[in-house]
Amino acid sequence: MKVHISISEAPASYNEIMDFLKSDHAGAIALFEGVVRSDVLDNGESVTHLFYEAHVPMVHAETSLLVEQMRQHCDVYAIFFHHLLGNVAVGQTSIWLGIAAQHRKEAFEAQTWFLNQFKQRVPIWKKELGDQTQQWVVPHE
């Protein structure tokens, strides 16, 4: 399985992702983009940006572990994962997850499984920024 894992302040490009994922055997490519939305902060202000930080070595380690676990029960050919760091404005993409598989069923299942695990395990944190205030996002367990 081909694997790309990266995290940086530079966005991924569609061509880069598709060049990595496409092959003669992959009949399905599922590409997910997580886009920053304008939620409302506790004080009623609208979110304008998200700020992301991470423990980068652990991001690579945990994401690689997720890929290994996914490989055991998902039949996919390639995975492309990229996450942004720093400030990301509303409407901009902060995470890309592309999966290539023989059929769409495997691609969608792998994508959903990976995203669910990622949201619980990969050490990245985000802060919601408004014009006047900011607050860390802390998921409730």
Partner: peptide
């Protein structure tokens, strides 16, 4: 986390260790 590994509750901390404290993650 120490040395890129999550510590178990009973692991002993050493002098001059570099520890990383992590709240629940919220990426994506």
């Amino acid at each position: 986390v120490r040395d890129n590994r999550y510590l178990a509750d009973d692991e002993i901390i050493q002098d001059q260790d570099h520890l990383f404290l992590m709240p629940p993650v919220s990426g994506g």
